[in-house]
């Protein structure tokens, strides 16, 4: 086969494979339970970023996307602050007065949470940052257990740190 015809065949082949991949992927994504929207929320200014999947836990309605407001709430002791990152991350640095309730250990730590707060207490949950949805997952589980005042700090620990606000550490 002449080289030119071979190259043409290669490019047609690429085109065919790409078309099959696009049709197949969009079809599966549409019907899959883990499928995502064609356009997600990737603007950090608007809150926690999310692909908007069918199993999405992110609820922008409960977010607080203002670090100054969060600092005010903490200094006024208006909220119980929950850090849902790992214990190691918490020990390395956390928001003042925050309690460690790692999402990965939700079932184990939940009874301790019931001792700490009432279902009508104002609770503020945070995780590592704008690209972390663990705080929303945790908040969603609290709401499912009929907690009534659960909010999420969208910027999380990273934003708090970048703002230069006070950080507490657990020294060994």
């Amino acid at each position: 086969m002449p080289a030119e015809a071979m190259i043409k065949k290669d490019y047609y082949g690429v085109l065919i494979l790409m078309v099959i991949a696009i049709v197949l992927s969009l079809g599966v994504n549409h019907f899959s339970s883990s499928g995502i929207a064609l356009i997600g929320q990737w603007d950090g200014e608007k809150g926690v970023v999310t692909a908007k999947s069918k199993q999405d836990t992110v609820d922008s309605e409960i977010e607080i996307n203002n670090p100054l407001r969060v600092r005010q709430m903490i200094s006024n002791r208006e909220v119980v602050v929950l850090d849902v990152r790992s214990k190691d991350a918490y020990d390395a640095g956390h928001l003042p007065g925050a309690f460690s309730f790692p999402l990965a250990e939700f079932d184990a730590v939940f009874p301790r949470l019931l001792d700490l707060v009432k279902k009508e207490s104002a609770i503020l949950v945070y995780c590592s940052g704008i690209d972390c949805s663990d705080s929303h997952t945790f908040a969603g589980q609290l709401l499912a257990f009929k907690f009534t005042q659960v909010r999420v700090y969208a910027g999380g620990f990273r934003e708090w740190q970048e703002m230069g606000f006070e950080i507490e550490k657990n020294e060994e």
Partner: peptide, 14 residues
């Protein structure tokens, strides 16, 4: 941001 989800859906099948 507008292209992230489409890449995430299509690229693995490619």
């Amino acid at each position: 941001g507008i292209g992230i989800n489409v890449i995430a859906i299509v690229l693995p099948y490619v």
